[in-house]
Design a protein around this nucleic acid. Sequence first.
DNA 1: GTCTATAAGTTGATAGAC
DNA 2: GTCTATCAACTTATAGAC
Lengths: 186, 186
Amino acid sequence: MSTATARDRLIDTAQELFAARGVGATSPRAVLAASGVGQGSLYHHFPTKHDLAVAAVGATVEDALARAMHDLRGESPAVRRVVDYLERPRDALAGCRIGRHTSDQAVMDDEGLRDVVTAYFVRLLGVLTEAFREAGLPDDAAGDRAHAALAIVQGGYVLARATQDPDALTAAVRGFVGLLTQKESM
Amino acid sequence: MSTATARDRLIDTAQELFAARGVGATSPRAVLAASGVGQGSLYHHFPTKHDLAVAAVGATVEDALARAMHDLRGESPAVRRVVDYLERPRDALAGCRIGRHTSDQAVMDDEGLRDVVTAYFVRLLGVLTEAFREAGLPDDAAGDRAHAALAIVQGGYVLARATQDPDALTAAVRGFVGLLTQKESM
DNA sequence: GTCTATAAGTTGATAGAC
DNA sequence: GTCTATCAACTTATAGAC
């Protein structure tokens, strides 16, 4: 339906399949079938599955970072921005499109691909740490609290998938935000 | 060098491989090779991969629950027990042996197998909620805080794997415990 | 750039001897 | 109960025509 190039259609389809099933469990053939592109085209644009995965996961990381930065880099007070980020609506039962790859051997055994995932989390942790510093915490405590905040989101996804209950993620966020916003939260 | 039966060796080996690579990425052949058991024996004891997975993941869940209950069911004050559970040493870079399965389609698409994973988390959430209730929180808040506590552990594993840094898990725990143990934490 | 055909290896599982 | 041999389907590609 699109005037999109074969390459773009391959990346779009791969992003969706990798997010839904993981990289290891998604065959190049599955991407071909879902995208409607021919076999030769895939291997023309992406000689190996690794190349396709780096392109698709890289695109997903860029999208996710852009959205996160929108929440975390606003005008409101630092803790408010973190809470906005934590409380943003998420498709909990689908799991995190990027965090899920940490359990995928096809990703973790591939250095270039793993680096893409690492960069996403390092970047998020950096911005969250900066926010907590801005809120007045010393460096060590700001880093620890940033790790806790991001762990709440990632762990909330795991709990939601495990219990098949999307509210498990929102409950984890509520529990954390409750502690975060009580008086003397420093 | 064991007198263990072929069946026991198969379950032990499968537990390790499923924990390290996931169920979907571990072939019955890999379990055979690592256990030293013959092909016929596997399919005698476990007619399908599903049967092996239910036995192996079920055994892992039982082990993990027993250890968690040891921490969470002691004599000390409720919040102290939760903190002991959170601060217990963990092999962060290996990831959670059970939580990782929430990203494994081979597990999540198999109802019986998924139920084993669900039961583990429902049980843990129940015990954690009870502890926070015992600490004086009303039911809703106790449930939310229990979700947050367990999300910290699961999310901490994800962050440690993503950044290839085991201290990412301990940092998340420190950040959460800091909030948890400040005055007026109710 | 895109296609169809095909290769060599692996997957989950079965057959049938011992 | 345990073994080796084998299976059809699928995996990640490659070959070569259009």
